[in-house]
Nucleic acid binder design. Structure first.
Lengths: 217, 217
DNA sequence: TCTGTCTTACGTGAAACACGTAAATCTGTT
DNA sequence: AACAGATTTACGTGTTTCACGTAAGACAGA
């Protein structure tokens, strides 16, 4: 049984989208939500395997929500549904932590396939999106490699937590206290983060955090 | 019995949207279409009372389609569904021939209500849209994006130079060498900057530099 | 089971920070 | 010219963070 959450700012679409999985035996909608804050709140309480999120607009707000969700619920696979198919938005969504993307050419069956694929730990992109990605990165490059392209998703949830707090101007000591770990451990995490992202200085770390919507400025 | 047609470029949404009227006794979906030309073609052959059309984007293309439909099928009432709620798009859609508009705050019941209302020859606008239209007459819009006296002007040119270089990830030593001054002096400058701007940490200094366009990210 | 990553943590020397003090210089005003 | 105030320069001292290496236990996937 796979537990699903749906998010769409448009109630009508939300109802329509979630209605598409009725009639399946192994998919269960445990949450359908049209409010961003409610979503974040509920996800803390309810177990969800896949979150289907409709993205209407190319906005920092939308990307930010994905990042927030990724940070607060690293185990939840995020499936983006959108008619918007610009390279920019797709790549940014992936970078923000989305694991799947359904373009305008997708139908109900594609969505179901995407859900199963995500549940199994793989990425899923509809044909149009795959073409888009291939055009940019020529052939041979796999989607998993895009994740690794020094994006937020290459970091562990702990590392993201640390990076977030530090970028919000907390000191190592404060972070250590908050998480009940040693200051040395915080330093270690930061070292590992910088290694992974290939950053030379902590200043770069702040910039990375801003670029990737981990913090607001 | 009311005959409905659905149009959405996004198949997934199309299926979702049309699925919402199943379970009603007096509404019948006679057409669900994700292709613009096919829609125009089919409408010549099939009798349709209300056309529900999802509008993803603010484009001439979309508006054009409404106009074409209005011209070729004057009896078909067009109900627009869209999360886009700019005055511009709503007014243009109405002008183009739409008889109803469902905003992001609408749910299934609103859609059903809208369908019946349109069938009876009246217009239907969801609450958010009505507000939008009313606001137009009430207040002359004001976008105050001009503020932020921001302390950058309180910094001396030397201080800005130092801040800029440091925010570009140079070390104190590198900055000192560049300006032929002591590392301690660089530190002093940074201290003074933080005092002036009332910043608690160097992380805040990076953010300040970004906010004030002293550096690019 | 083995391998890799995550999380935890320490050691050490260098660099940066916090906070105070202070002299020489520049700048605008009386 | 004389004075006040900000600027630029710099140091002292103690604390914190950084850089780089090492490493052990936990945990998950092949």
């Amino acid at each position: 049984m796979i537990d699903l959450a749906f998010y769409d700012e448009h109630r009508l679409m939300l109802e329509g989208l979630s209605g598409l999985v009725s009639g399946t035996s192994d998919l269960r909608t445990v949450l359908a939500c049209d409010d961003r804050n409610l979503l974040l709140q509920k996800l803390k309480l309810i177990q969800v395997h896949v979150l289907i999120m409709n993205m209407h607009e190319i906005s920092i707000r939308s990307l930010n929500l994905i990042v927030q969700l990724t940070i607060s619920n690293p185990k939840v696979k995020i499936l983006i549904v959108s008619v918007i198919e610009s390279e920019e938005i797709v790549l940014k969504a992936i970078k923000a932590g989305a694991k799947g993307f359904l373009g305008g050419d997708s139908d109900r069956n594609d969505m179901l396939e995407a859900i199963y694929t995500l549940r199994n730990g793989h990425d899923y992109f509809s044909k149009s999106i795959t073409h888009l990605l291939l055009n940019r990165y020529i052939s041979g490059m796999q989607t998993d490699a895009i994740d690794q392209a020094s994006g937020i998703s290459s970091l562990s949830s702990r590392q993201i937590e640390i990076l977030k707090m530090w970028s919000e101007s907390y000191t190592n000591q404060e972070i250590a206290d908050r998480f009940f770990i040693s200051v040395r451990t915080v330093e270690s995490h930061k070292n590992h983060i910088m290694q992974k992202l290939n950053l030379k200085s902590t200043v770069d770390m702040v910039k990375f955090a801003i670029k990737n919507n981990i913090i607001e400025i």
